[in-house]
Amino acid sequence: MKKCFWVIWVVGSFSVWAAPIEPYEFANETDRALFQKMTHELRCLTCEAQSIAESNAPWAQDLRREVYRLIQEGGDEMAILTFMTDRYGDSVLYKPPFNQATWVLWLGPFMLLLLGGFILGRIVSRQKGN
């Protein structure tokens, strides 16, 4: 018992029992969509494998409020992301930024696809050699 997070002790995979439902009101659909997108792309640091949109943890609740506040103040996606990473670092983002440490992550699948295509192409082209 090293720390006191609102750690939810659950067996297996899913870790919340009550869905967080908060009646935030939005001036328009764009704002609502932005709110839903952003809260799904920010990770709840005190939970395991949940976005702040999915967690009932008080911390996630606070962050949803901040996201809402930023949207009400006219903040765009960039402003919200900057606000969050300034305080919590990159690990709060579910979509890691492309940089020196993550280029393998982002380009890896395409490199693998190219490699697979290359191998496939070679196997198929053997036919022509003979």
Binding site: K3, F5, P58, W59, E66
Partner: peptide, 15 residues
């Protein structure tokens, strides 16, 4: 009480 300042400090738990 509502964690506004704590969020600016990057707090995500206690202590």
């Amino acid at each position: 009480p509502d964690a506004t300042v704590s969020i600016d400090w990057g707090v995500y738990g206690a202590p």
